[in-house]
Amino acid sequence: PESADLRALARHLYESYLKYFPLTKAKARAILSGKTSDNAPFVIHDMKSLVEGEQMINCRYMPLHEHRRSDLGIMHEVELRFFHSYQSRSAEAISEVTEFAKSIPGFINLDLNDQVTLLKYGVIEVMIIMISPLMNKDGTLISYGQIFMTREFLKSLRKPFCEMMEPKFEFSIKFNMLELDDCDMALFLAVIILSGDRPGLLDVKPIEDLQETVLHSLELQLKINHPDSLQLFAKVLQKMTDLRQLVTDHVQLIQMMKETEADWSLHPLLQEIMRDLY
């Protein structure tokens, strides 16, 4: 019976994951490998294709002004505009992660302050795991898989923008080697969200109890789904250490950009999450 409960939990979290996250790993890998009936993604590989690609995605924050600017001005503004759009998508993703968290059995019964803390500390880690399937060594899907942005292009942006994605590529390439599927991912995301060691938690015990159940479900899921992959459960859990360092570095970079980029404004939801984070 216990094993049946753990399988039911895995199915429930997988269904929530499919409900709240629009681009699954299965879909992303199909797009990246060309095995989909949908159109191939538009490739952004330079400033010209960025401007073209930008017209395909929703840029809410800044109007187009490039016809009034010098070439250098266009580059400067396009980078800022692109990252505003990227922030807007991140805010939407945080909303999706929040809905997923609320679907974890027992989560909404936790102290409301603790729910806030778990999300504050967990969402960026979850988002990094979520973008991993969108990445390969050459670039990343963005905008729900409509666009593929090359890694070389991201590296060619001016500092500090060029430093933002490279650590995520390095992490993702290694993480993708674990070959988790969407159901494995759903359970792992729930484990990350239910971390009982986040700073400032008021009542740790119920969080740890919930996490323990999800951990058992993940362990069973990995045994069944990857019978030949030795120590996969341990390897997946080890990624949580790398994730914390990635988030710390990411937040430091964003906070530095807030100070050095005069035209930079951070989305209010990201401000909330990153304020006093690490």
Binding site: Y20, S88, A91, E92, I94, S95, E96, T98, E99, K102, I108, L112, N113, Q115, V116, T117, L119, K120, G200, H267, P268, L269, E272, I273, R275
Partner: peptide, 21 residues
């Protein structure tokens, strides 16, 4: 804490679909 995280709090309290950000 929830006072300092009004949007996050709103997302948590919202009962159905993700709210417009």
């Amino acid at each position: 804490l929830k006072e300092k995280h009004k949007i996050l709090h709103r997302l948590l309290q919202n009962s159905s679909s993700p709210v417009d950000l």
